[in-house]
């Protein structure tokens, strides 16, 4: 029994270190805490196990997730072509609306104006969404792994139904 629990703990610890997403790392850390609490219980230390289960898997997990939520920066790449610098009223109102979305979701909006083609942005930069304006038609590109994808879709369909949301795949 104890060997199984110890192997589980080691696996959870390795997964927490090796994962690509911080959010998954936090969940693995909670799993690690639960496993180690069980190991303490098997070693006849129920007091420590109780404290570990409460502090490790409840309080710290939620605090980490809240911290991630709070300090998230939402990077918006606004792609402009040569003659249009994105300063006209229509573009500004679209950007305002996206900033409102970020405030609603407790995100920090960071807007970057660029003239690079979309393929280059996808290849070289860390982005959350890419705005593209073409013949008065706005397109929003969002990566399929972005966890705000559903929230953004719902928000845009309510506030700005003219914008198309396009999903980038890996």
């Amino acid at each position: 029994m104890i060997q199984v629990a110890l192997v589980l703990v080691i696996l959870a610890a390795l997964a927490a270190v090796q994962t690509r997403y911080l959010r998954h790392g936090v969940i693995y850390l909670g799993l690690f805490s639960l496993g180690i609490a069980f190991v303490y219980l098997l070693y006849n230390a129920p007091d420590v196990a109780l404290a570990e289960a409460i502090i490790g898997s409840t309080l710290s997990t939620v605090l980490f997730i809240v911290a991630l939520q709070k300090y998230k920066i939402f990077t918006i790449y606004y792609r402009v072509s040569g003659e249009d610098a994105g300063q006209d009223a229509a573009s500004q109102s679209v950007i305002k609306s996206l900033e409102k979305f970020c405030t609603k979701q407790e995100l920090e909006a960071q807007i970057i104006y660029t003239t690079e083609p979309i393929a280059d942005i996808v290849e070289n930069h860390q982005f959350s969404i890419i705005m593209n304006k073409q013949n008065m038609q706005y397109d929003v590109f969002i990566h399929e792994n972005n966890y705000k994808i559903d929230a953004l879709k719902t928000y845009l369909s309510q506030e700005l139904p003219s914008i198309n949301v396009k999903i980038l795949e890996d």
């Binding site: 129920p46 007091d47 404290a51 502090i55 939620v62």
Partner: peptide, 21 residues
């Protein structure tokens, strides 16, 4: 039984988190 002031207090403190969620 196992437990005590600290553990029980932490459980009651976890109610705050439940409330926040």
């Amino acid at each position: 039984t196992p437990g005590g002031g600290f553990q029980g207090g932490a459980i009651i403190g976890a109610i705050m988190i439940a409330k926040y969620l």
